[in-house]
Design a protein around this nucleic acid. Structure first.
Lengths: 241, 241
DNA sequence: TTACAAACTTAACGCATGTTAATGCGGTCC
DNA sequence: GGACCGCATTAACATGCGTTAAGTTTGTAA
């Protein structure tokens, strides 16, 4: 089990470093590690979970299953993301989390979440910070699904994913390895898989992106971000739990 | 200024009561009250705000403005809702809050938010609870916008609003007073105002609801909730900040 | 009582996107 | 090498929703 002082996530510049005090606390808070394979469900919609996770490595989707089987991907999960707050705070997950690649996660105990609030207000503040940022992204997603057409939506999703992967240091001059399939992108954007394919082709023809066999390349980031309605800023550093 | 011990919101059974200790703390935390008129903007997208609010009375929308003027209503604001967490935690609002009726709000100081985490872990926990519930509703909204057709969307929105107003004790046998216009509903659901009108008519013809001159009546709640993909449960009690 | 504005309704038409189905293409297993 | 499988692409057609524009209704103020 990796010691929190040697946490590989902290090598990524997008995360705020731990103070020595935080390291001590997190060592006590962390229970174990676990791994998952593509397709595994880490957290089940409708169920409680005694375990909370921080993603060390790998990718996943958060998704909501409707009564009749339709599926909405609420957002994508990246290394550093904290999973299970809903189960931790509200008792029951309202969405599922499913691995799309092999994953490695840190495991925490739900029952000790209250300790964190009682003993470590700064960590509690960070947790709320994370929740607030999450809320902001969900709001942006709602605006995208509600107001933008297919081209803008796909541009938005690719831009956001690329931005996040780059911040994680997973980009090369050869482009980034996209850990999601077109079908998942479609489920995230409220589009059919067929129309998503058409739309990606359009972006290709417009000379904005190249996306082939899981490799995404930005040919014209400026124009892509404009189309997506996003500023080309670097993401703010975020705390880790 | 209303004393927190006499807070009118706590008369509503949907809110958890304050402990005597909490009353003492909230009296110190609350700075003042303020009122707003329909159309007033309480919090501005892109701006910081030194003030956080709890809605005592009245209704509002949270909405995101796109570069080109399109508007997405992210959700509706009801009495008891806490406003400004984003500005409080992240620094800058990513959406605006606009009154749709006259409003009365409690005012808190952003600079004292940290005190709350340091001195009152139970209140901090409640705040995070609120953020987690908010996150859950936003996820449900994303699923609705992404997967459901116009009829289901309108049914969902009316069901959720009716549910909330009922929980607040604002329903009578004559139905509830809807504080939002069809145009705002359209902006919340990613539909045009015209199609929203058509769709409401459909629901009327199906004998599910009556909505005329701001009065909403549920003619067949069971079927409406089924169409909306919602269980007909009472909402959980929630804490107030 | 009339006039006017705001909100809602209805109708006609076009287009973006969904659906179904066939095709292609790279990876993998034997 | 051949057969298969998952995934992406392309084409043909259907449809739900947007758009524009013309009513209608209600509230309000002169």
């Amino acid at each position: 089990m990796i010691d929190c002082a040697a946490c590989p996530l902290h090598k990524r510049p997008m995360f705020l470093p731990f103070t020595p005090e935080e390291i001590v606390f997190m060592r006590g808070f962390k229970v174990s590690e676990d791994t998952f394979q593509p397709g595994d469900t880490l957290l089940h919609q409708g169920e409680r979970s005694d375990r909370l996770f921080t993603v060390l490595d790998g990718f996943a989707t958060r998704s909501i299953q409707l009564e009749d089987g339709r599926r909405q991907v609420v957002n994508f999960v990246f290394p550093g993301d904290f999973l299970g707050l809903q189960a931790g705070i509200m008792g029951e997950m309202r969405h599922s989390v499913q691995a799309t690649t092999p994953m490695r996660v840190c495991v925490f105990q739900r029952s000790r979440l209250w300790d964190l609030f009682r003993d470590k207000p700064d960590r509690a503040y960070d947790l709320t910070w994370i929740a607030a940022v999450e809320e902001h992204f969900l709001g942006e997603t709602i605006a995208t699904l509600g107001q933008r057409d297919a081209t803008e939506r796909v541009a938005w999703a690719l831009a956001r994913i690329w931005q996040r992967l780059s911040a994680l240091g997973l980009g090369t001059t050869e482009g980034v390895q996209l850990p999601f399939r077109q079908h998942e992108l479609a489920d995230a954007l409220g589009l059919s898989a067929v129309h998503t394919s058409r739309t990606v082709s359009t972006l290709r023809e417009m000379g904005l992106v190249a996306w082939k066999r899981g490799k995404l390349n930005m040919l014209d980031p400026q124009r892509l971000f404009t189309l997506a309605g996003l500023p080309m800023e670097r993401e703010e550093q975020r705390p880790l739990i």
